[in-house]
Nucleic acid binder design. Structure first.
Lengths: 218, 218
DNA sequence: AAATGCATGTAATTGGTTACATGATTTC
DNA sequence: GAAATCATGTAACCAATTACATGCATTT
């Protein structure tokens, strides 16, 4: 359902082609959604049939002709209605965390490799977003005005930046945690892969940012 | 693809029924995945046909009979292979952030309502996870040993707790941000919904945690 | 010569959600 | 008396991914 409103939302700001829409999803909107051209084009046709958007052909030279879409009044109404609806309960899907959850099946070496690999991927994402923040700020300065549009998109960008930064920090801390236990980890077969808590309590409390036993209860 | 490995992963620890698996997805694993019984049962049949899992019937009194599944050697191999594969590039889907991105179409009052509503949902999730952390800790203490299993699941739990806490903080800060501009927001029609940057630079820098212009460039 | 960008699509398949169907037992 | 728990499934539908298909212009 969200793709529909993502597209209507974009078309409520600018006229765009399917190709343009895809580029937005690949840049700024990658913070919260992703999609494929093969999903966008049929969806555009569907929305046009429902009279939520309309299109006109733009003939071009040297480039293929294109279909410019714009939102209709019915489309604007549909979008507003969605924006006013209570937000859906978040249903997370994070395949890396699922992998991590079962990584006790791997050697410490392999776990560290996976964590470092993933950290790099997140760092690449963060760099891309920082670039976007810089461009966003140039835009605000250039226009010398702050619109509600720029305010909300900045807030979303902030969330994206934060999320990446914190995931990276978690990777770093978890790498340290696994390294701390590396010697015990791989002697799994010898001692059943276990360590008594007295040995590890402090490390664990630090990792979890826990001060005392009592603070856990609420 | 992840559901398959989530199920294989679970069955690599314990024998379980489809119903048991669903309960895991609804509790701890809700940090990173969600699914439905109507997806689990066909998937179990598929995995059994592929000889990755096998089942035996348990006849019960007072309760319906059940099918207990366990992983096969082929299943364990398949799981290990997946765990060793380089993690997929994260493809986020966050319908609330999409909504937020287009909320300049709403009144400040409505935006605040949505942010507060969502904050509460995240707070509820956080409470549930804190409860899980407490239970997890009791488990470690009871057994008086830390297994690699408990180490990795704790790390994932930590990521879940963090993520919720930080989303809540973002909601709070964004509520303050919108409140700061509430008077300008709703006079949209009068002054085109704009404010010059000189008026807002400090507020923005604080929100973004930016010290100076230069630090933006990298 | 090969890859990328521009531009639009279809087809096949897999993944995910909602609704439907059953039925005993236990808890509120 | 109603709702929740235990337990397993099917059917219909919608969403998403991957592969296929075309073709010119520009960049590497």
């Amino acid at each position: 359902m969200s793709l529909k409103f993502g597209m209507l939302g974009l078309l409520s700001k600018w006229e765009a082609t399917g190709y343009d829409i895809k580029k937005e999803f690949d840049s700024f909107m990658s913070i919260f959604w992703h999609t494929h051209l093969s999903q966008i084009y049929p969806e555009l046709n569907k929305l046009e049939k429902e009279n939520l958007i309309e299109s006109r052909m733009i003939l071009q030279e040297g480039k293929p002709d294109k279909k410019l879409y714009s939102i209709t009044d019915a489309g604007k109404k549909e979008l507003s209605h969605w924006l006013e609806k209570p937000p859906e309960t978040p249903n997370v899907k994070d395949s890396f965390l699922m992998q991590a959850f079962f990584m006790d099946n791997l050697s410490a070496k392999d776990v560290l490799f996976q964590l470092k690999h993933y950290q790099k991927q997140r760092e690449a994402r963060l760099e891309k977003l920082k670039q976007t923040l810089y461009e966003q700020w140039q835009q605000i300065k250039e226009k010398n005005k702050l619109t509600t549009r720029l305010l909300m998109s900045s807030a979303v960008l902030k969330r994206g930046l934060e999320q990446e930064a914190e995931y990276i920090e978690w990777c770093k801390r978890t790498i340290v945690l696994v390294e701390t236990f590396e010697h015990v980890w791989d002697s799994k077969l010898d001692n059943d892969g276990t360590t008594t808590i007295d040995e590890v309590k402090d490390i664990f409390y630090e990792y979890f940012d826990i001060e005392d036993e009592e603070s856990l209860k609420n």
